[in-house]
């Protein structure tokens, strides 16, 4: 019974991670480091909540979340692909931008900075995001392995010079990949505000973009293993939520802050133990320019 509940809850809480990890996959397999996933998720969560509030339809909200993630991704792509800025610095800047922009827009639209108005249950998602996320995992797997576009994506991250010599424009492939990345991260954010909770609240992603990135690395930049890694990290989070209510027989309870550390702590442990075996795409983080 408890296990059933834990399983269901794992599947739910890992959904935003799955979307974001897939987003990271497109960007990173194409050779663009994407620590801006966090920021893209955050604007996605806000835009989805705001969109649903006004349209009373979660699908409109999800579309808004995706569009906002892509907009932020376009800014990121402009800097790191076209202008060849450092990807870690630009990614951090995008995250800070998202952190500041969302409360500002929230204030402008709803006159409070902390959260959007609560969305009624009937306007929220109930299971669609879980299904959509896993369909996208399979689609991504097929796209990456079996289509010409997937092959280009892999070469853009592995040996962009080879791709260029084969007559495919590397930076075009990277642009498309980063936009897809932003769209997926935006959907991840939408599933956070429209599925796991009932509104957007300030910094509600709380590092999930980074955990998704960790899952991607743990999954060796491959769709299915990365999604499974998301389940693992989701399981840590679900456990953490359960542990919060537990009281010991003596009457004491675990300090809630301590319990909340758990997913992050386990993330570090897992990464420290396994990352060494995982080889990133060779051109990851390197801007492309024909000599």
């Amino acid at each position: 019974m408890i296990l059933d509940e834990l399983g269901a809850s794992t599947l739910r809480v890992s959904t935003p991670l799955v979307f974001a990890a897939l987003g990271g996959l497109y960007s990173e397999r194409a050779g663009v480091v994407n620590i801006a996933l966090e920021g893209m998720m955050l604007v996605g969560a806000f835009a989805a909540a705001a969109g649903t509030y006004f349209a009373h339809d979660p699908w409109v909200g999800a579309a808004a979340g995706m569009a906002s993630g892509m907009s932020l991704a376009a800014i990121y792509a402009l800097f790191v692909i076209s202008l060849r800025a450092n990807q870690v610095v630009a990614g951090t800047a995008i995250n800070i931008l998202a952190l500041g922009l969302t409360p500002l827009l929230c204030k402008a639209l709803f006159e409070v900075t902390s959260s959007t108005p609560s969305i009624p249950l009937s306007d929220r998602f109930h299971s669609a995001p879980v299904v959509a996320a896993w369909i996208l995992v399979l689609v991504s797997w097929i796209v990456v392995q079996r289509t010409p576009a997937g092959l280009w994506l892999r070469f853009a991250g592995e040996n962009p010079d080879a791709l260029d010599s084969a007559g495919v424009r590397v930076n075009f492939v990277r642009w498309v990949a980063v936009l897809i990345s932003g769209g997926l991260a935006g959907l991840g954010g939408a599933s956070l505000s429209l599925f796991l909770s009932s509104s957007f609240s300030r910094n509600m992603t709380a590092g999930r973009g980074f955990i998704a990135l960790a899952a991607l690395i743990f999954g060796k930049w491959r769709p299915v293993p990365a999604a499974v890694a998301c389940l693992l990290f989701g399981c840590f989070e679900a456990t953490q939520i359960r542990l919060q209510g537990i009281t010991f027989p003596g009457g004491g309870s675990f300090p809630v802050q301590f319990v909340q550390i758990l997913p992050y702590f386990l993330t570090i442990l897992v990464l420290a133990g396994f990352v060494g075996q995982s080889r990133p795409p060779r051109a990851l983080g390197l801007p492309f320019r024909r000599e």
């Binding site: 079996r146 289509t147 010409p148 092959l151 280009w152 892999r154 070469f155 592995e158 040996n159 010079d161 080879a162 791709l163 010599s165 084969a166 007559g167 495919v168 080889r279 060779r282």
Partner: peptide, 25 residues
């Protein structure tokens, strides 16, 4: 050489000139 190390010889050769069928390689 301009080769993508972890990818197969076949993938390296057809890159950019992939024969297609229903959108797949």
């Amino acid at each position: 050489f301009l080769l993508g190390g972890p990818h197969t010889a076949l993938e390296n050769i057809i890159l950019g000139a992939e024969p297609r069928r229903h959108g797949f390689i």
